[in-house]
Design a binder for these strands. Structure first.
Lengths: 189, 189
DNA sequence: TGTACATCAGTGAACGCGCGTTCACTGATGTAC
DNA sequence: TGTACATCAGTGAACGCGCGTTCACTGATGTAC
């Protein structure tokens, strides 16, 4: 049963978004094409009408997820961004949280196309930090960029280490809280 | 063809060590039981004479790999440890590098037994940092612990983000270098 | 110490299963007259 | 605008393949006498 062009396009976008969330939750190898299509409300056979392969979708889903982190960064100032990033809520919300934190371990073993998507996402984050620092006039772009790299690496590391701990381990919360203070406190000055 | 008890025990240890390296290189889902046994010099059938399941081996291999990071930390002072940790050599040496950096993304999706192994490994790292800080007399244990959490989260995040970039991306090296300076420079005082 | 038997580490074929992908088919949509 | 035909998004069965795991078998090791 054929479907409107507009509907088909909307369905495709919905599949990408669903995939983006499922991959973040379970990893690239943890989600099958059939799982994914079922979660989006379709049967698996139609998948190849939209995508050349599972790998193609992985790249699109990564780009889709990374764009969300980018818009969150743009909407908030640096302190607010990291205040939310380094929270238990973010750590526990794997499927809707940062794609970088959820999948950068997997990305490292993926083909160059997917790695390039991650690098582009990160570069976008840094470029915006450079501009923001320049606008506030309190940092030259080079310093603003370096500070953002340091903070983001720490924030991603904290979320990932925290998620690798058992849910009930006090250490899981401790990592988040210590790193949140380390990043946010100096920004309050 | 049966084998000496001592030989069997040595073979078992060799399988665990081989697995630890292969898992770090390709991730838990990227290595099959047959791959692994072949890499260790055996056929796959004998696997279940040593281990109850692949998951059991994953836990043992994680413990084995994390112990290596622990002994590296013990042998070096803090500045030396991070100087080596945040190097291109470490980033490129996935199979022999830090298990936490190679597998904490995968660990987050594993059963509690494996997560507990990671948490224990991290706790060991922190306990030694507390003692080292106390011995030097320049930090109380609580502060030494917090500083170690901050530094280690940043170091793990930097290695993981760097590895998620394409090999030829300048950003991959930039992340490592910026974070190495951020951690090591203040320690030189 | 020497002999006979039980044990069990390691082998390689075989198992069921779920994966990514293909394909013939359906029927509403898009298009040409 | 109405009709006839081509298109193609979505369906569900089927494919080959590699996975984790099982099993009958081998033959050197360990053990009991």
């Amino acid at each position: 049963m054929r479907v409107t062009k507009a509907q088909a396009q909307a369905n495709r976008a919905h599949i990408v978004e669903t995939a983006s969330e499922l991959f973040r939750e379970r990893g690239y190898d943890g989600v099958g094409v059939a799982d994914l299509m079922a979660a989006a409300g379709f049967t698996h056979g139609g998948f190849y009408k939209h995508f050349g392969s599972k790998a193609d979708l992985m790249a699109e889903a990564a780009a889709c997820g990374l764009a969300k982190t980018a818009s969150a960064e743009e909407a908030l100032d640096v302190a607010q961004f990291f205040q939310r990033y380094l929270s238990r809520e973010h750590r526990d919300a794997r499927s809707t949280g940062c794609t970088m934190a959820a999948l950068c371990g997997d990305a490292a073993r993926q083909p160059a196309a997917i790695k390039a998507t991650f690098a582009d996402g990160l570069e976008g984050l840094l470029k915006r930090a450079e501009h923001a620092g320049a606008e506030n006039g309190d940092q030259d772009p080079h310093t603003a960029r370096a500070r953002m790299i340091e903070r983001f690496a720490q924030a991603v590391g904290a979320i990932m280490l925290s998620r690798a701990c058992p849910d009930d381990a006090p250490l899981a919360d401790e990592i988040i809280e210590v790193c949140r203070k380390a990043i946010v406190a100096p920004l309050a000055d």
